[in-house]
Nucleic acid binder design. Structure first.
Lengths: 204, 204
DNA sequence: TACAATAGAACAGTGATAGAACTTAAGGAT
DNA sequence: ATCCTTAAGTTCTATCACTGTTCTATTGTA
């Protein structure tokens, strides 16, 4: 696999990364040759083939104008990182962050399902041991079992992190902070966005 | 194997460690010669060969521009894992586990110093948001600043996780659970084993 | 004296290129 | 539909400059 590139291969790859988008169609080997100052497409083909074997260029099996860069999903700068979606504070919508960010999450703090990370604002869950500033790991889901702690959207605008209790025709959200009271809603007022599966806090 | 390096070999190895990354491509022997002030690539080759036999440089079998430092990244399994040392419960010694175990810890929950992981038993820190079963990350240290949460060994036998306050001739350990009281000790009764830098909890 | 370090020449293998021949794919023309 | 033409991708060999390798001789040093 990850063979070391020769100097020329690196040059050609750099050129492709920088100029490939400029071609209206993916270029032919001949066009690339003139662009690179070569006069033999056979030579260029050999170099391209090396890049394909290195996984940097998508293989083009006899297809015309088939030179494309390989999708670089192979980049794994952080193996187990989850997206940091924003901040959650009781009574307000989730405050999304614009710039994409990720947070490292150990395997045992997440599930095999799709998960994401929020940061807690305020102390509405302080008696559950979830404090201002904590990072919480949420499994994306639209339903919950009684007793689970859920990220719920109430009336389409207020996000909360609370323990859920679902009865016939009613949904009760229990805060863990004794200075706040449980609230009862009708099921169509409450939209579950995920359930709490992990929590992290730093002290330094 | 570990042959003793001559002075010149050590010099060359040090130079490679420091400057090899500066070359856009691995350098040729001639380039290295001018960089090192030599005029014969044959001489340099002999030195490099010695470094290869010492296992410090990756062998380059006739390959061009093949000079690379030997990779010694044998730590693939669990890049960021810390040792799980055992269980801590207020009032008892730390209960070590016999079989070696590790826990994944994200970078931002640890420090650059030596760290390890304990699991909490009991609720002595419940008002600090540290609950029964939580994993805590400890930085190994034998002193602390006031206000930090420390793993302390009292009278050589009782381990606790408490907020520390150090005065003239006295050490006060504050539990965060209001049903328990702060205790005052003399400094030689209290041995600091580390300070709390991170905490993790799973809900599933 | 023995060993390390260097210079320099001669040798050998690699990497890059050109060029030609071959194969495949696409699109008309019959 | 079948065949043909053409453009483009593929394979092959030969060549050449560059670079790693080997060897010997020389110098300096403990």
């Amino acid at each position: 696999m990850a063979l070391a590139l020769t100097r020329r291969q690196q040059e050609i790859y750099d050129y492709l990364k920088e100029h490939l988008w400029e071609f209206p169609h993916p270029p032919t080997l001949d066009e690339l040759c003139t662009a690179l100052g070569l006069s033999s497409k056979g030579s260029l083909h050999k170099q391209i083939q090396a890049l394909i074997e290195a996984g940097l260029v998508a293989p083009m099996n006899n297809r015309r104008r088939g030179i494309r860069l390989a999708e670089e999903d192979a980049e794994l700068p952080d193996e187990n990182a989850l997206p940091m979606m924003g901040y959650i504070a009781a009574g307000r919508p989730i405050e999304a962050i614009d710039h994409q960010e990720t947070v490292q999450v150990p395997d045992f703090l997440r599930t095999s399902k799709s998960c994401y990370v929020l940061q807690v604002r305020g102390g509405s869950m302080i008696e559950e041991g979830i404090m201002d500033g904590d990072h919480i790991v949420i499994e994306q889901r639209d339903s919950a079992r009684n007793g689970e702690i859920v990220v719920a959207l109430v009336d389409g605008s207020e996000a909360t992190l609370k323990r859920i209790e679902q009865k016939q025709g009613a949904v009760i959200l229990h805060p863990a902070n004794s200075t706040m009271e449980a609230m009862t809603y009708s099921p169509d007022q409450v939209q579950i966005q995920g359930i709490l599966v992990g929590q992290m806090r730093r002290y330094h």
